[in-house]
Computed example of a mutant assay.
Amino acid sequence: MMKMPATWDELFEGEAERPKTFLHDIAAPLITGGLGFGLACFLNFATRRPLFSGIQKHILYAGIGAVGGKVAEGWRSEFFAERDAMIRHYISLHPEDFPMPERKKYADILEEWVPVR
């Protein structure tokens, strides 16, 4: 059985060690690169050309999209890291505002079931 943390510091200490999947680092560039490729296809469709004509345009748009996705993912992770650090710091400065929640059992939460007939 897992023991309940006594302080907020104990509660937050394991967050940095979460395992990441192999798709975690390439998901954003892959999606935005695919959107760039799709944009090139759409532009060809809109100008009544064959979808895959001008393949250099497809490669360029896919590359720009992948780089843009990687940059946006970096900004996003920095934003969330800064936000989480700010929240942890606030909680450590004001522990009286954040009491540890009491551990409850399912028997205390669930009400007795009575069938309706």
Rank of each mutant, 00 (worst) to 15 (best):
M1I: 12
M2V: 15
M4A: 09
M4R: 03
M4F: 07
P5G: 02
P5A: 09
P5T: 10
A6Y: 10
A6V: 10
T7Q: 12
W8Y: 07
D9G: 01
E10K: 03
E10S: 05
L11A: 14
F12C: 06
E15V: 12
A16H: 09
E17M: 11
T21E: 11
T21Q: 04
F22W: 14
F22Q: 11
F22S: 14
D25A: 09
D25V: 02
I26E: 03
I26Y: 05
A28D: 10
P29T: 00
T32R: 01
G33L: 00
G33E: 00
L35F: 10
L35P: 04
F37S: 00
L39M: 15
L39S: 12
C41V: 07
F42E: 01
F42N: 02
L43D: 00
L43M: 06
N44Y: 01
A46W: 14
T47R: 07
T47D: 14
R48P: 00
R49I: 00
P50A: 15
I55H: 13
K57T: 13
I59N: 10
L60V: 09
A62V: 02
A62D: 01
G63P: 10
A66I: 05
G68L: 13
G69R: 04
K70H: 06
K70T: 03
A72T: 05
A72I: 02
E73Q: 11
S77K: 14
E78W: 10
F79Y: 14
A81E: 13
A81D: 12
E82G: 15
R83D: 06
D84A: 03
D84F: 08
D84V: 06
A85M: 05
M86Q: 12
H89K: 08
H89I: 00
I91K: 05
I91G: 02
H94V: 00
E96Q: 13
E96M: 06
D97V: 07
F98H: 13
F98L: 05
F98K: 05
F98I: 03
M100T: 09
E102R: 08
R103G: 04
Y106C: 06
Y106K: 07
D108Q: 13
L110F: 09
L110G: 01
E111Q: 13
E111C: 07
E111L: 06
E112H: 08
W113M: 06
W113G: 02
V114G: 07
R117F: 06
R117P: 14
